[in-house]
Nucleic acid binder design. Sequence first.
DNA 1: CCGATTTGGTAAATCGTATTACCATTCTTT
DNA 2: AAAGAATGGTAATACGATTTACCAAATCGG
Lengths: 333, 333
Amino acid sequence: MKEVAKAAGVSTAVVSRLLSGDKTLRVSAATRERILRIVEALDYTPNVAAQSLRLARSRLIALIVHNVSNPVYAEIVSGAEAAATARDSALLLGEAASLETGSNRLIDLIGAGAIDGLVLQGAGAATDRALAKAVRKRVRTVMLQVETEADSALISLPDQEAAAIATDHLLALGHERTGCLATAPGLRFSQARVAGWRSEMARHGLEAPDSRLVWAGSDLALGRGGVKRLIDQAPEITGIVACNAVAAIGALAGLEDLEIDVPGEVSVIALHDFPLADYVTPALTTVRMPLAEMGAAAVNLICGDADLAKHHVTIDRPAPRIILRRSTARASG
Amino acid sequence: MKEVAKAAGVSTAVVSRLLSGDKTLRVSAATRERILRIVEALDYTPNVAAQSLRLARSRLIALIVHNVSNPVYAEIVSGAEAAATARDSALLLGEAASLETGSNRLIDLIGAGAIDGLVLQGAGAATDRALAKAVRKRVRTVMLQVETEADSALISLPDQEAAAIATDHLLALGHERTGCLATAPGLRFSQARVAGWRSEMARHGLEAPDSRLVWAGSDLALGRGGVKRLIDQAPEITGIVACNAVAAIGALAGLEDLEIDVPGEVSVIALHDFPLADYVTPALTTVRMPLAEMGAAAVNLICGDADLAKHHVTIDRPAPRIILRRSTARASG
DNA sequence: CCGATTTGGTAAATCGTATTACCATTCTTT
DNA sequence: AAAGAATGGTAATACGATTTACCAAATCGG
């Protein structure tokens, strides 16, 4: 910047104020043009580190997800990235597995307060570490789907509603004995989905006993194993609400292992949707939830100036809706 | 840091040199302990922006991928993230779609030389923009799979070898008339895979005419459409080498649309592997390539001090290997 | 006891930008 | 023509580290 100022015969203050669009700066059209031409000619770009130092702001947002290879989380990442870009910020990505132990740069950046905001998906050691650091430096933090004691915001999805919609779909097809393949126990969203299933069953005067509920998780293997336990516990069921679509695909495989036909003998409907759900066999009927929008909302919340403490929003636009495919069918009985 | 220095009764120079592990610093054990205790007590963390400014180094690496939701690219991201973390750097993630137009922070960071390195996957407007900025500021750049005129490194996969392995597998099963469902034309890796198919056919004295080749792409829809063109052009084929596993899954759907049984009438083997490939029907036989390792290698190359200009490496460990599933079977004829 | 060496530090100059608080002129106005 | 306002800027400081060059006091060898 010094060089630009010298070449233009002005002080660096003018250059800085001009480039940062200072409204109070009065400058003749001639010098303005001259400076801009020289900036162009010298190919000057402001030093980002100096700016961050001076402004105490980095326009960097960190997102820690459990696992990018899970299409559900990938969609969150995608939404967050798009929003960050739209907000003129860049996105730092971390995966839980690599951040759990040892010293590493991303956790350090959080601990140094060097980022403008932090978005945490999922619960675990990595998330806890990040959160602890963030709290100390008062980094604006948004939790996705799982709450915490810290003064961070919480963004959730209409979990209960979506589970109810899924359950209702099975009921409408005539399945009266439904089971629930839940995600990991103890998490808010997990409970909410189970509650959606239970309450919708209750609303129709049907029972939803614990024997028809299995806690599994959000990946293929857990879904595959979980569905076997579910069938074992409750062989009478003809419909399954799977609380996570990736697990549901595992469940389809598990049912095939058991030689149970889907949707002939058992219908399966899952929460969340992603492109490949249309390409498994049978194509998975799902209830789509606004995952990308959730990622985007988190970033927007950070970039906005709302007080994040105990701030809780639910992303209900677009509303959860059924993507009808082949894994659900009318009950045969 | 000033506060720490004052509290310890020393100058900031000692604190800085102590914390950064300066070997030439001579301090008494007493002051060393005292300073460290005070750092702890005051919960001091060095200001990252100031360090970056002074050291002209940010320990930030940017990775731009076409699309995180594609499991093939997700695995690259995952590998890169792990390597960055291991190298004590953080990973900035960008998706092509959001970076193509308009001003945005990530491209600006590159243009300001504010990152230590840049990894580009795929070709397109976003990649071109990033590359142009990187060249001007001499940012260490690594291209994945597609080369460029710039002085950046290129990392590739054993594409030709993998395609040959896939082809060989079909030949071993007795398929003499094979087709190739290629990815986008004009890209190095795309050509290499086709070359692998062609040369392996030739090596067995079989023909591989252009009619049995279709250029598609790397997503579900392009695979689905592409396979239909392929069958249309060459209805005689009984085996398909799909150059991308995501496209291959689209192709399975396309074949089902055509009511062609896999593997009964046509066998399909694809390049690249990911968990869901085991869960489609029929489960997709693939040739696994070291995608995560490629992402990691890119980061390691950046963090190392090799001269990147015209540096070309192929990731051949672990070697491509067949993951045998159900989409390939012995030829019936 | 004197000069040399070691010990244990320090002072000060960057790094590149943003911003506050001030001017000199020149132009109006009466 | 003198006072007041507008024009077009400038000087200086702070942001928070790193690093080079230097130095006083203590120790040591002879």
